[in-house]
Design a protein around this nucleic acid. Structure first.
Lengths: 134, 134
DNA sequence: ATGTGTGCAAAGCTTTTGCATCATC
DNA sequence: GATGATGCAAAAGCTTTGCACACAT
């Protein structure tokens, strides 16, 4: 009983939008983005598909910030910076977790680590500038 | 216009409960924990005080997992493991983020990193055992 | 007295879901 | 035709909040 996935133009558009931005959007952001082009798009559909992408590994959830879940179409391992001022979520490359010894830790604790996410909080470059000039 | 903080027995109890457990509880968990001793305790009060503790630095938010925000009375820097099976949130000590070069990164990006949190996802020791025996 | 904390319940908010309808296979 | 996807709107569920009352200073 395998279920075949039917093609859906809207699903493709949602994934495309997610992959095509670096802003780690919320469901509503994607919805607003596509609404002009797909006037009958439903917010529920966006939620359904984003959730689906996370399950199939086509996207990941960055986390819930200020009540909104943020998604990322880039599934390669990298950290994120969340700005406490404007709420922006930015990619941070160049921080490798390789040297932390997660494997050794797993053995010591007897647990099984499948994923590691590093989230930084502070001010994004834009808000740093604004604060300096203020 | 400074506002003085009045003493509240319930607030003290909430903080004590939070500091006294290693389970990184949700607001409701704290509420259920204290309800027997304080029958007229309100869930709203727990929310209000947990939020306050985070603002005053007496506690931190570990993040939102499965829709529930989890808090931690231990504000020292350490990582967390979230079990995808049972939802448990555990402390993980011994993973230092010192060597990552966050300062250098801040300069390079022009941002201001104030906090770094490392969250691991996988299976906790208990669920690893259960899976093996299954 | 004055200002702060709380209980209660309602409101707020994001996210999920049921069902009829439509599209894809 | 059969199965999957969507729109719509209602429901769900966690969290916040307004207000009247109680408590601490």
């Amino acid at each position: 009983m395998e279920r075949k996935e039917h093609f859906s133009r809207k699903r493709a558009a949602i994934l495309e939008t997610l992959k095509g931005t670096a802003c780690h959007p919320t469901a509503d952001w994607v919805y607003q983005q596509l609404k002009p082009q797909y006037p009958d798009l439903s917010l529920g559909t966006v939620y359904r598909n984003l959730k689906r992408f996370c399950e199939t590994g086509q996207a990941v959830s960055v986390g819930v910030f200020d009540g909104f879940e943020h998604f990322d179409g880039d599934t390669s391992p990298h950290a994120h910076l969340v700005c406490r001022q404007c709420g922006a979520v930015m990619d941070v490359f160049g921080l490798s977790l390789e040297g932390l010894g997660l494997e050794r830790l797993s053995h010591q604790m007897g647990c099984q680590v499948e994923n590691a996410s590093l989230t930084l909080k502070g001010l994004c470059p834009d808000c740093v500038k604004q604060e300096k000039s203020a």
